[in-house]
Design a protein around this nucleic acid. Sequence first.
DNA 1: AAGTCGATATCGCCA
DNA 2: TGGCGATGTCGACTT
Lengths: 253, 253
Amino acid sequence: MTRTEPDTRVDTLERPALEAARETLADGISREALVTVFGRCTVDYDGRASSELGSGDRHVMCKPDGTILVHTDEGQKPVNWQPPGCEHTVELAEGEADTTDALVLESTRSTPEERLRVTFTRVLQVSVFAGTDETSISLVGTEEDLRKRILETPDLLESGFTPLATERATPAGAVDIYGEDSAGRAVVVELKRRRVGPDAVSQLRRYVDALERDLHADAAVRGILVAPSVTDRASRLLSDHGLEFVSLEPPAE
Amino acid sequence: MTRTEPDTRVDTLERPALEAARETLADGISREALVTVFGRCTVDYDGRASSELGSGDRHVMCKPDGTILVHTDEGQKPVNWQPPGCEHTVELAEGEADTTDALVLESTRSTPEERLRVTFTRVLQVSVFAGTDETSISLVGTEEDLRKRILETPDLLESGFTPLATERATPAGAVDIYGEDSAGRAVVVELKRRRVGPDAVSQLRRYVDALERDLHADAAVRGILVAPSVTDRASRLLSDHGLEFVSLEPPAE
DNA sequence: AAGTCGATATCGCCA
DNA sequence: TGGCGATGTCGACTT
């Protein structure tokens, strides 16, 4: 039978008193565990922007790297959050004569100065998760994979294309692939892993412009956008600026 | 004393057998609750790209809107996920002679076709959260707020500026603010809530180009980028293209 | 359903 | 640390 290793543990409190919740949370955070709280709370944020969220039942997760996430029952993104590197504090707010006590979870950082405060009036569950995760994810189908594919078989772009550099620097930024065509003309290639809109065309145009100035060339620099497909508007913009399009996808595996 | 309303409930299983976990999860999902699982699992994804994640302890959340999130103990973003609108299924994978049973959580959708599979070999906690959250968040400090600020006090942009339209359509997209200066020249304003780089300059240039063609005007269209600040490279690009910059921030509150 | 663009975007890389 | 661009970006809004 499978035995649980001693370094994988979960502690759960159901409907704890606020003081018990505070103690368990503070202990879990100090022990670098992942902790969660579910309960009735309000949320205030102030930093790059400011937000307020009235009372409701939410799920809060604090990670040992300083991340905090507040999730409602809808949406993929947290309704409020704080990025890795924050400091978490947990304390009880003493109730005045006519107010109830509250459990206050606060997360702050500097650069930029930001503060998130979650105030619980009722805690339904507190959990402390201690586990191990040595594995890292492997992802296939990225722009990087598309680049490798073209560098391996440059003819996929067009017959006679010769890659000369990747990430070639220009005054406007780094070009994905820089090379020359069979006639020796300079070619700028911008890669996108998926269907592209106007922004990708602008990006390519920026690089072509910059390279033409940089090379001080009289001959025009060719610009080729490589993506699975383009939108109508992007296609029009490409024509308007004398840029080209080649349909290619990242390898599926 | 505060009494918990009957619609706010939490059910927790600690170290359940896989079959008990399956039943509780399936029941919670069918009852439109938010459910979480913590345990040792592998994760496979196939859709817009493909990913694999080996065995480790992770926290999985399924929301009633079809969202699924897989969190490790690091990072703000889930290591794997599926957006709202997916279908969740939970089932036991029967173990072969030399393999253990597993609890398999699968989430699929179409358009695009995507599948996420989380396979648990050990479950340390299953929770079912039923709560209420009627409140919606209020956020201040967005680009929209910056736009309102300028429309209220156009002189903030420059003396004599007159806004004529917001979201004015051009062949290259919609212009944030379209107006004219004290001399009657057409002005395109692009707004950004924070410090901008080259992409914002390209965007503004796209609109100015499109509007000049669209207006069939001999007189040039002025382009003004409004943001708290610009990077060096963006500043250079602005000069290169005869575009202007005005420093303004969204209102703090 | 697809296009377009903002976002407290986040994240990783590199100077 | 800031600049820069990719992202399985997400999400809101419009067509």
